[in-house]
Design a protein around this nucleic acid. Structure first.
Lengths: 207, 207
DNA sequence: TCGTAGCTTTACCAATTGGTCAAAAAGTTC
DNA sequence: GAACTTTTTGACCAATTGGTAAAGCTACGA
């Protein structure tokens, strides 16, 4: 056999690994790394604990795998922001994508938030290697828009922070929001509110 | 002895209980409830584990005590918002108080965030009993301001959410921010940015 | 200085939990 | 369907962890 060749995973492997990762996402996002147990993950996945350790070398590897996958998904919406597009449209579209993501992938958002809150013990390298360069690049794009007079003068970094925080809030603090908004519908009106918020900030003042 | 009378705590009790609670705040906010161990708390407090259990009946009671104390601190800035003051000034002052709190009490902010993210297992009652009424009351105040034409029309609930999320973000995601803002100073420019953000949103448009 | 209440420690559990191992079961291939 | 590989399981550890019991220490008023 050719050296370095890796066997392609069997159908069973594919199915079970994804079962495990999905279950682990449930459990880790709900209880944090240490709060999650292999037994919980096993039960959620419908597999036995030793069987899970047949597919992953340990709890840590499952978590790391999840985090690696997550980082890609997480950077995507920002990557799509196009320097050659209309500044306001691009930024508002970015806000909308982040908000959609908070709604469609709340578990991922909570997993990420929990990891960061606890000091990002397993994610710091990713932040430095993947997020930081992208962040710097896109901040430069926004700064260029500002310098060209196409946006009101704002600090791009704080702008991005506020986009992240306001959108992810709807996923990370869903329980609180559920208590405060009597309705069970997931935060109606958020889209319009955030569009207003950032439009008013970024529209060059004719005031 | 008079019935119902409680012994006033000795100086040692006062000192050690506060030592324990401070240590526990460190540990719980950094690792979450399950991630924290009594041994860690004991070491951080400079006491032995059994000694800690002399002052608190168990891990859970320490956590609950912390959460109870926290809820008061947390509601304070919102309580101070005065219906008879100038709407914009009141709201901007509220934003500033929250931002100051994120800077001065980051551990508390993270403890709160972690608890909510994980479904608020020990805090839901507090949210319903304490936060919800206050939230409803203050939303009504803001709505009245809007109705009186003193603020641009916004959904008060989403406004409050965005104030919470943008300010707390600087505490909860401090590690990420540290990576992205090369400077070690804690987020300079945040105050000015948030003032702009909310001023532009709330100022009745002469646009 | 003695007694007593309050405080602290040493030694110890029982339950949980991440992980191992060898053998059984289930596929696969020829 | 035999031979072989992959997958699954039941039994079992060792370490960690929340918590207990009882003895020892300390402060302090009478």
């Amino acid at each position: 056999m050719p050296d370095g060749a890796e066997k392609k995973p069997s159908r069973i492997q594919l199915r079970n690994r994804s079962l495990i990762l999905d279950a682990a996402l449930d459990v880790f996002s709900a209880h944090g790394y240490r709060g999650a147990t292999l037994d919980q993950i096993a039960e959620a996945a419908g597999l036995s604990k030793p069987n899970i350790l047949y597919y992953f070398s340990g709890k840590e590897e499952i978590h790391v795998t999840l985090l690696n996958q997550l980082m890609e998904t997480w950077l995507d919406p920002l990557i799509e922001m196009d320097a050659s597009g209309d500044p306001l449209q691009e930024l508002l579209a970015y806000v909308q994508r982040k908000l959609d993501m908070a709604r469609e992938l709340p578990r991922e958002s909570r997993l990420f938030a929990g990891e960061i809150i606890q000091g990002a013990p397993r994610m710091l390298p990713h932040l430095e290697a993947d997020l930081k360069p992208l962040f710097d690049e896109k901040c430069a794009v926004i700064q260029a828009w500002v310098d060209a007079g196409k946006l009101a003068p704002v600090d791009p970094r704080h702008l991005v922070f506020s986009i992240w925080s306001t959108t992810q809030h709807y996923a990370d603090f869903a329980v609180q929001i559920g208590v405060l908004m009597s309705t069970d519908k997931p935060a109606p009106g958020a889209d319009a509110y955030l569009r207003d918020l950032f439009t008013n900030l970024l529209t060059p003042a004719n005031r």
